[in-house]
Design a protein around this nucleic acid. Structure first.
Lengths: 104, 104
DNA sequence: TTGACATATCGAGAAATCCAGATATACAAT
DNA sequence: ATTGTATATCTGGATTTCTCGATATGTCAA
């Protein structure tokens, strides 16, 4: 775990919002692309295009943001056909919260 | 509370170290300047010069780092004569840890 | 295999951050 | 008043981050 990279990932409004939105994907991504049955895609995460639309930044920006957050440990991704679904890495986030409480 | 500013403040190795050192000033600042009786200065924090020596960055850099961290809410300072003592704002840090656990 | 679409990567200019030295300010002691 | 010390602020060059458009890659459908 590289705390600095986690803090850097969270030092940007858009990225922080993405992480929060992904806490409740059903609420924040209602126009869920109909690529997959609801239960599958929500469990598996939200696809890049839907996140881009909500975040209102360019496709390349959102893609690299998601990659950055994944490298930091905050997100994980699953490819499903031509879509990549990103979701929170809850284990890691919880572990980091604990680190913050005890080490910081 | 501006979470983004807190994350930015913590996105730097030196600043993160300073925050950790200030958790146990007695351990990390043994050559405590003899400006004040020990109990006073430790309770009140550590002076800029001592932090600078430990952090091994320039005087101006450490001063602006401490100012940044204070603005973010992580530190508080007390002036005592010609010395400024910085210490952790434990209430804020604890509050932020809670925010992280519940909101992030 | 070609075309369409989703996502990733590349390249670059603008903006922000890093961090130092120089200078200013505040206070203490003489 | 003057000098010395601690800290803050200013200035600026180097580096990093931000964010885009363009292009590449991967996948599905026809």
């Amino acid at each position: 775990m590289e705390p600095i990279n986690v803090f850097k990932a969270l030092s940007n409004e858009t990225r922080l919002n993405i992480l929060k939105w992904l806490k409740e994907p059903e609420n924040h991504f209602p126009k869920q692309g109909a690529h997959l049955p609801k239960e599958v895609s929500y469990k598996g995460g939200v696809c890049v295009g839907d996140i881009q639309e909500k975040a209102n930044v360019s496709q390349s920006t959102v893609s690299s943001y998601l990659n950055l957050m994944q490298k930091a440990g905050l997100l994980e991704s699953i490819r499903h056909g031509q879509w990549t679904y990103y979701r929170r890495n809850e284990d890691f986030i919880q572990q980091f919260a604990k680190y913050f409480k005890t080490e910081i």
